[in-house]
Design a protein around this nucleic acid. Structure first.
Length: 229
DNA sequence: AGGGTGATCTGCT
DNA sequence: GCAGATCACCCTC
């Protein structure tokens, strides 16, 4: 007999996803290096439409991957069956499966000969909250719904079936302009362990957002920390 | 702090 | 064709 406090406000119409006045982004938005696209994605809203409904997600944390330059990028070692979408036109979703149980959602960007992508790491569910809660029953608070890349994909209902879907004007995804965050709240940080572009900031987030883990924002890499004590 | 999970890639034969 | 290493994480303890 759990106490469902979150169901105590039935009159709140927060699950509506009004379509009026929401222009799509120009396709050229993604025809830039991922390090330029990534910060511009913060604060924008990604709508995901699947048979069981819509979920709107306001992006709060993203990470750029530069294909040829970044050893951590799936595109680093060339085209394979799994990462083929990264070598296609920008503005499409690249979804991969990892750790035997998690999906992660990336947006392909960059010129075709310089494939890159932006990993969507966290966001705030601004529409379709009930559906997102149902998909992520283990979330105890709403800011947990899309806190972390695999949770984000789960909240949106994304798996490999959405790999390659158009993000600009496709039937599944739609990237809406949203409200850009105040410049004073924008943060970025370099990733350690990537020597080829040490000056390039890879991770971007909005300071103070509950869906962004503040601990992770200040800790570059777990792997890079040696065993102490 | 550690366990779990399965697709993918690499290197070898 | 196959074995072993890898993996950008979530969850439970």
């Amino acid at each position: 007999m759990p106490t469902d406090r979150r169901d105590e406000r039935p009159t709140e119409r927060q699950d509506e996803c009004p379509d009026e006045g929401l222009a799509a982004l120009p396709r050229a938005f993604f025809d830039r290096p991922s390090t330029e696209v990534a910060p511009d994605l913060l604060g924008r809203v990604l709508r995901c439409t699947l048979p069981d409904g819509n979920v709107d997600l306001r992006l709060t944390e993203v990470e750029a991957y530069q294909g040829p330059d970044d050893p951590a990028s799936h595109a680093f070692r060339g085209r394979t069956a799994r990462n083929a979408v990264m070598f296609g036109p920008p503005g499409h979703a690249y979804v991969y499966f990892t750790y035997g149980m998690h999906y992660c959602l990336n947006l392909v960007c960059g010129p075709a000969l310089h494939p890159g992508g932006v990993l969507l790491r966290a966001g705030e569910v601004t529409g379709g909250v009930a559906l997102a809660r149902a998909r992520r029953a283990t979330s105890r608070r709403d800011h947990d719904l899309a806190q972390g890349p695999a949770r984000l994909a789960q909240a949106l209902g994304v798996d490999r079936a959405q790999d390659g879907e158009d993000v600009i004007e496709g039937p599944v995804f739609r990237l809406l302009p949203g409200t850009p965050p105040p410049a004073a709240l924008l943060r970025s940080g370099p990733r350690t362990g990537v020597s080829t572009a040490a000056d390039t900031p890879w991770r971007f987030w909005i300071e103070g957002e509950p869906s962004v883990s503040p601990y992770r924002a200040h800790t570059p890499r777990r792997r890079s920390l040696g065993k102490t004590a």
